[in-house]
């Protein structure tokens, strides 16, 4: 039994102009499908990474799971105790007018958990005295620690982490990533870790899903995905990661850009950028079979 189960979950957003403008300009309603038929199982204790470029729907998946959005279609089943979330922007995720103590205590007071603020602050590497301060007195990394303390105050067994280190400097990012894996080990947490940075995901995730224009195009154990990527988009992403080792490995130049999600390409939405696309890819949406959604892979062409 997975801890969390997403079954063909979709989410639409109405991005139409206001009613009056629409009538005057004879424009139809415009619906943006941010998440399209996403299915995903997450087991207790594992870390699933979700990667993709901006606008691929990964943050929407996070918000669907914690209930900030309701799914337009599909079902989300959660069998655990409680979900909490860690956000990307350490500057926007803490109320600037609240003292740290009150921020961390909010879930305790509201949910009635038997946690202690001082203990939580210590757990994330802050001093209990820091509770008296305001968020602006802390650096980005320390704020992200406060954010984690607040999430832990709700006694979650599942943490949804939406780009938790993207706004941080690398040396601080390392601190936060180490802290998170430490907490996972001690508290038996399950993570959904969302990031645009493949290197970061490769450090934390047991399994990784790759999203493109609202769909999961590949899902595989991390070791396999990073050593033997199957979907052409995954390969392209991996090729685009700057090479710190300066091995001078040959790289396929990346082609094109993410298309406008309001008017996604027909068939496989990746086909305009794909070196292996053929007539079928332009016509037919590939089914997600055996961890990948690609005609070329399933036909054995690549």
């Amino acid at each position: 039994m997975p801890l969390l189960k997403l079954e063909r979950v979709s989410r639409d957003f109405d991005v139409s102009p206001p009613w009056l403008n629409r009538v005057l300009d004879h424009e139809p309603r415009r619906i943006l499908r941010a998440v399209d038929q996403v299915s995903l199982d997450i087991d207790k204790g594992e870390t699933v990474g979700l990667v993709g470029e901006s606008g691929c729907g990964k943050s929407t998946v996070a918000r669907l799971i914690v209930g900030l959005y309701a799914p337009t279609e599909g079902r989300i089943e959660y069998r655990g105790r409680r979900l909490q979330m860690i956000f990307q922007d350490p500057y926007a995720s803490l109320n600037p007018r609240w003292r740290v103590h009150d921020i961390v205590a909010e879930p305790i007071r509201f949910l009635g958990t038997p946690q202690k603020v001082e203990e939580l602050l210590r757990q994330v590497g802050l001093s209990p005295d820091d509770g008296e301060k305001y968020p602006h007195e802390f650096s980005g990394g320390q704020r992200q620690r406060i954010s984690i303390a607040r999430a832990l105050a709700g006694e979650p067994d599942f943490l949804v982490c939406d780009e938790p280190t993207s706004a941080l400097d690398v040396s601080v990012q390392a601190q936060i990533l180490n802290l998170m894996s430490d907490l996972q080990r001690r508290l038996g947490l399950t993570y959904l870790f969302i990031s645009h940075n493949l290197a970061v995901v490769s450090q934390v995730a047991d399994r990784v899903g790759v999203m493109y224009l609202g769909r999961i195009v590949e899902l595989a154990p991390a070791a396999q995905l990073f050593s033997r990527p199957r979907h052409p988009y995954t390969r392209m992403l991996l090729d685009a990661v700057p090479d710190l080792g300066m091995s001078g490995r040959p790289r396929t130049p990346v082609r094109g850009e993410v298309p406008n999600p309001l008017a996604p390409p027909s068939g496989c939405t990746f086909h305009p950028r794909c070196p292996h696309a053929n007539e079928r890819c332009r016509r037919e949406v590939p089914a997600f079979i055996d961890g990948v959604a690609c005609h070329a892979v399933l036909e054995g062409r690549i």
Binding site: R63, M85, N95, P96
Partner: peptide, 26 residues
């Protein structure tokens, strides 16, 4: 739209409580 408001919603606080205790002071 800021994430601290979303954080309060994830905890399960009601709209009125969020308006008064989170948004109003800001």
């Amino acid at each position: 739209e800021k994430e601290y408001v979303q954080a309060a919603r994830v905890i399960g606080r009601r709209p009125l409580a969020i308006m008064l205790s989170h948004v109003l002071p800001n």
